[in-house]
């Protein structure tokens, strides 16, 4: 499905998107407001759970990066028609999607790094936990960016897009056990939490950091589904990018 990927022009477009996003630095900051507010609540009401909330804030922040892809892809297509400039060019459609996704990720990395440093101070991570964190967050980013890009291609105006983007963010970022630990989640629903990329990334990171216990079966379920969903969505994103480079 995603065979013969051509990445011509991707690096340049990535740099363009990073530059564009950094000029909107206020958006980068306000993109961290929900996480900051939730961290303050947890700090006040349950300081013992702050490390859990930080892991959640990391996963949520990275999920939001993908939702920025939804907004940016839709905005520059609907309002600016810049997609036409890039699609009618030697740059491949997959470079457009991947360049935009990675470019936005780079711009939004500083708040993520800040949260990671806070976590490291509060609950030092070993090398395994640190690697688990990086791999899990990358998977969440890939999943969310591809989902965001795919959803963005389905709309003709910005107003109809906003509710979907907020629906996705709440569905993946707030409802499942992201900001709160898995052991507070209804136990019969635990497998479900491990199937959702955001909450499974949180469970895997917290397991690797010795903050929650998961059975080997749960680890396999969480890691397997997270990897599979990330790869599947990435392939689908490339497929959507190619298909929508030309309208039907």
């Amino acid at each position: 499905m995603a065979a013969g990927i051509r990445l011509a022009g991707m690096k340049s477009f990535m740099a363009t998107e990073t530059m564009v996003q950094m000029h909107e630095w206020l958006a980068v900051l306000t993109g961290s407001m929900v996480q900051a507010a939730l961290l303050v609540f947890v700090w006040v009401w349950a300081p013992g759970l702050l490390a859990y909330a930080l892991v959640g804030a990391l996963s949520y922040s990275v999920f939001l990066v993908g939702q920025r892809v939804l907004n940016e892809a839709a905005y520059i297509r609907v309002d600016h028609k810049l997609n036409e400039l890039y699609h009618a060019s030697p740059m491949s459609p997959e470079s457009y999607f991947l360049g935009m996704s990675t470019g936005i990720l780079l711009a939004y990395l500083p708040p993520v790094a800040f949260l990671a440093i806070l976590l490291e101070i509060l609950h030092p991570l070993g090398i395994v936990a640190a690697l688990t964190l990086i791999a899990s967050l990358l998977a969440v980013w890939a999943f969310s960016s591809a989902l965001g890009y795919g959803v963005s291609t389905r709309f003709r105006d910005m107003k109809t897009i906003w509710p979907y983007s907020s629906l996705l963010t709440n569905l993946f970022g707030i409802v499942p056990p992201v900001f709160y630990p898995l052991f507070y989640f209804e136990s019969s629903l635990r497998p479900l939490a491990l199937l959702i990329p955001t909450s499974s990334s949180v469970a895997l990171i917290e397991k690797a950091a010795g903050m929650v216990s998961l059975s080997p079966g749960e680890v396999v379920l969480g890691a397997g589904s997270l990897a599979a969903e990330a790869l599947l969505l990435l392939a689908a994103g490339i497929y959507w990018a190619r298909r929508t480079a030309r309208e039907g």
Binding site: I76, D79, H80, K81, L82, E84, L85, A88, S89
Partner: peptide, 11 residues
């Protein structure tokens, strides 16, 4: 090819 779309806008 290269294209100036109708009602396009720069970044």
């Amino acid at each position: 090819i290269a294209v100036v779309p109708q009602e396009g806008k720069p970044f």
